[in-house]
Write a protein that binds this DNA or RNA. Structure first.
Lengths: 404, 404
DNA sequence: AGTAATTAGTTCGGGTATTATTCAAATGAT
DNA sequence: ATCATTTGAATAATACCCGAACTAATTACT
């Protein structure tokens, strides 16, 4: 597991503890941090001094405790100097998000792009341009970007940072990390590539930092369906990063062939196309791929709100089919929370209640109940997760922020 | 995550590293251990001295390196002083295994017992007697038992060490740990209760320590079917220990009611009763519960070997039904290895090939292939896992062996 | 207003674990 | 026999944490 521990490592671990302790909760005094972490007051002071030196933490205004005694100086995470960049490569857009150390989004950009008709090299050029914008922004604020986390809808090789296979992108063996590093030059931050559903799970997990949730399941869905799993507070990747490939579970329509080669895949029931087909006729505007997806979903949502029987029936069917697959995942994974992402949150009002009821009906023990919610992160979910992933490195080893 | 690190914790971590390093591979000299761990020679020597003092490690004979230079003194894990005890509570037997620090079984016992007709208090008495035997054995060898890991087929509350619900035992809210502690008195080792499938996974994982397998799925089956999941080298428990409750996945016979209240549960297809019903008529000896299960399985195995069409057909059906569920688990978890436990290993020759073929046929990428094997641990699987679980604590913090 | 009580944060000595270096011991090669 | 090589112990230097003492800032009490 863990390696050799010397004084430097000890220091690093305690800096990490201090920074993570500071992340959860309000700014507070050194004295309070000392008792919280169990470190002595002296150590706490020198750790804070080091973290201030790294630009990760700063003194806030005085702490108004209201109690007796000398008031302390509140210490807060400094959001202005260190940034994580997250990106998402998807079928019809590229997204970028810059998140500061406090978890706040300081910049985001979306570039519409029809990936099918764009050469890979050009996509990479455009990604590089987005990153360069972010780098300029960081420079202007006299801050630094500690890393770039990129999500792609497909199979990713973590080591090499390449997309092995992304059917919806039409990509096969694209060395994203290497290509981008070449374009960005030596000043480019380290690049991490990951499956988009896994990044979505990371994003949802980090948003719920203070809710004491260590086991979370994130379900993303547009055309394809995938899951990201956080187990025991850690992203679960499986042997080779294939965990959560739930779109093709054999719990869909019996016998129906799926483009993947199997039959009866779940996403034939709960994927975007299945839902749209149920909810509207072929000529309907919601099928028009030249209209942005969000707009089409808004339209359907509007019809549901006004009582359109067809859409309501589609939602009811969708809820039932989702329930089947989710109950499988609940039995296997026992998550504390299930977050529905992708196109589902647009219909939370119609999906959450029936699915929750279905899961409850199957529940054998109180311990296997899960909290079902819709994602509130929207499109930025995977990009945000990418940024959180690289920021996590700073919390794990604050000294990496030293390179100026 | 991790807490404060001081000098004592630093020492503990390095002792742990040293001991774990020693576990994998042959006995070797201090100098070699120093280069392997990255610690200095001086530190290595003092760490070894401490570990010798704790009775965890001893000097072996001289190391014959064959190379030039002064030969070193090989250091080996001392198997004679520290033991872990594992137990299993099952429907018709109690099992106990004593495992030494080197992972070798030094003692085991099985007590036949019809749990249905035995009062809980008496079962606990008998468990306590088995443990007392093991404690005597440890005392006779001038060693100590660092803990007792107990597996039960059901829902377990880890904190309190109690069985919340074990349908096959007919148990409801039995405070196993507390009751046993009361019977064993103050000299009793700490007791850990865990679900038996999870312990099986731990056992299989520890047996494959040197095979570089970090993601493993263990499937246990007698009447009930359950899974234990090791992900990233760690036992996955889920929010409340319910992970791996796969027996009641809705991928079994459509519409057939299960005692659990659901319909179409997987174990109605792949559980022991389903298989026996397929393989032999009602009056057949294999259905006679007064005959030990192993004997009945041997009989069936014999029939299969001699070409009994009924049994072969049953095995073929079983393989097909297992394939469906396993493919679900592979998609969700992406294990490197799947170990079949329970009654399956008796029929490995007939099950492994067709299931492997079925999984391969569904595979989308090389990265999602899993190695399928039958368990070789037999009945002792869960008990062995329990022992490994408590021994793991010693590897994590060698100082706990200090209490004499 | 003045003193006591309380809490914050710094300073410093002590303890401990690590590393690097030095040195004696044991062996193979020349 | 002598030298090179490797092991393992001994020693000095360094880094970090802890605890106690101390200064600082504020409230509570008389």
């Amino acid at each position: 597991m863990s390696g050799r521990v010397d004084q430097a490592e000890m220091r690093r671990a305690n800096m990490s503890l201090m920074l993570r302790s500071l992340r959860s909760g309000d700014p507070r005094s050194r004295a309070r941090l000392a008792t919280e972490t169990g470190l002595s007051k002296g150590t706490t002071s020198t750790l804070i001094a080091d973290l201030v030196g790294l630009g990760l933490v700063r003194e806030d205004e005085r702490e108004r405790t209201g109690a007796v005694g000398r008031p302390g100086t509140a210490i807060a995470i400094d959001g202005g100097r260190v940034f994580g960049v997250g990106m998402e490569i998807n079928v019809d857009y590229l997204a970028l998000t810059v998140v500061d150390l406090r978890g706040r989004t300081v910049h985001s950009a979306v570039a519409a792009l029809d990936i099918a008709s764009t050469p890979v090299a050009e996509v990479l050029d455009q990604l590089a341009r987005l990153i360069e914008d972010a780098m300029r922004l960081a420079r202007a604020r006299d801050g630094q970007i500690v890393g770039i986390g990129i999500g792609a809808p497909g199979i990713v090789d973590l080591e090499s940072g390449s997309v092995r296979f992304a059917p919806n992108l039409g990509w096969h063996g694209v060395a994203v990390a290497r290509e981008l590093a070449a374009r960005l030059g030596p000043a480019g931050p380290p690049i991490r590539l990951e499956n988009d559903s896994k990044l979505g799970a990371v994003a949802e997990f980090s948003v719920r930092e203070n809710q004491d949730i260590e086991d979370l399941l994130y379900l993303s869905a547009d055309v394809g369906v995938g899951a990201g799993i956080v187990a025991g507070g850690r992203l679960m990747r499986g042997w080779s990063g294939f965990s959560g490939e739930v779109g093709h579970l054999p719990i869909g329509p019996q016998g129906v062939a799926c483009p993947c080669g199997r039959t009866g895949c779940w996403e034939l029931n709960v994927g975007l196309n299945a839902f749209l087909a149920l909810a509207a006729d072929q000529g309907d505007v919601v099928h028009d791929r030249s209209v942005p997806l969000e707009e089409r979903l808004r339209a359907l949502r509007g019809r549901a709100d006004s009582g359109d029987g067809r859409v309501l029936a589609a939602l009811s069917t969708l809820a039932a089919n989702l329930s089947i697959g989710l109950s499988v995942l609940v039995d296997v994974l026992n998550p504390r929370m299930i977050v529905l992402g992708g196109y589902f949150p647009s219909f939370s009002d119609f999906l959450l209640a029936p699915i929750t009821a279905a899961l409850e009906a199957r529940r054998m023990d109180l311990g296997s109940s899960a909290i079902l919610v819709g994602s509130k992160l929207g499109l930025t979910s995977a990009a945000r997760g990418g940024a959180q992933l690289v920021l996590e490195d700073v919390f794990e080893d604050p000294t990496i922020a030293a390179s100026k």
